[in-house]
Lab assay of single mutants.
Amino acid sequence: MTYKLILNGKTLKGETTTEAVDAATAEKIFKQYANDNGVDGEWTYDDATKTFTVTE
């Protein structure tokens, strides 16, 4: 399945997608991606749209 991440960081904003077997796997990938890019904030997930959002 395709999952989407919306980044609302102070210095980085944008979107990315990943292919993952489930939401938990996608979350791990996205949290590593956000960490690698210096984004740390409040996480939400919308199962209907398979979208994670992180807001600093």
Rank of each mutant, 00 (worst) to 15 (best):
M1N: 15
M1Q: 14
M1S: 11
M1L: 15
T2N: 07
T2E: 08
Y3D: 01
K4N: 06
L5Y: 02
L5P: 00
L5R: 00
L5G: 01
L5F: 05
L5N: 00
I6W: 04
I6Y: 08
I6A: 04
I6M: 06
I6V: 11
I6L: 07
I6D: 03
N8W: 14
N8M: 12
G9Q: 04
G9P: 03
G9S: 09
G9D: 04
G9E: 03
G9N: 05
K10Q: 12
K10V: 12
T11M: 12
T11E: 08
T11D: 11
L12E: 06
L12Y: 13
L12D: 05
K13T: 13
K13D: 05
K13F: 10
K13V: 10
K13L: 08
G14N: 10
G14S: 14
G14W: 15
E15P: 04
E15A: 08
E15I: 13
E15V: 13
E15T: 11
T16I: 14
T16Y: 14
T16A: 13
T16M: 15
T17W: 14
T17G: 04
T18R: 05
T18Q: 06
T18L: 09
E19K: 11
E19T: 14
E19V: 15
E19P: 06
A20Y: 03
A20V: 04
A20D: 03
A20N: 04
V21Y: 07
V21P: 10
V21D: 12
V21E: 12
D22S: 07
A23I: 11
A23D: 06
A23F: 09
A23S: 08
A23H: 11
A23Y: 14
A24G: 08
T25M: 10
T25W: 08
T25H: 13
T25V: 09
A26R: 00
A26N: 00
A26S: 02
K28R: 13
K28Q: 13
I29L: 07
I29Y: 10
I29P: 01
F30L: 05
K31F: 07
K31Y: 06
K31P: 00
K31H: 09
K31V: 07
Q32P: 02
Q32M: 10
Q32R: 11
Y33R: 03
A34D: 00
A34G: 03
A34M: 06
N35R: 15
N35L: 14
N35V: 14
N35M: 13
D36Y: 09
N37F: 14
N37I: 15
N37K: 15
N37R: 14
N37Y: 14
G38M: 07
G38A: 07
G38K: 08
V39I: 15
V39S: 03
D40N: 15
D40W: 13
D40Y: 15
D40S: 14
D40T: 14
D40V: 14
G41T: 02
G41A: 02
G41W: 06
G41N: 02
E42T: 14
W43S: 01
W43D: 00
W43H: 00
W43M: 04
T44A: 13
T44R: 08
T44W: 09
T44L: 07
Y45V: 02
Y45W: 05
D46A: 05
D46G: 02
D46H: 07
D46Q: 05
D47W: 08
A48S: 12
A48V: 13
A48G: 10
T49H: 06
T49L: 07
K50R: 15
K50F: 11
K50N: 08
T51H: 03
T51R: 03
T51M: 05
T51F: 03
T51N: 02
F52P: 00
T53H: 06
T53K: 06
T53L: 06
T53E: 06
V54A: 03
V54G: 01
V54W: 03
E56Q: 10
E56V: 08
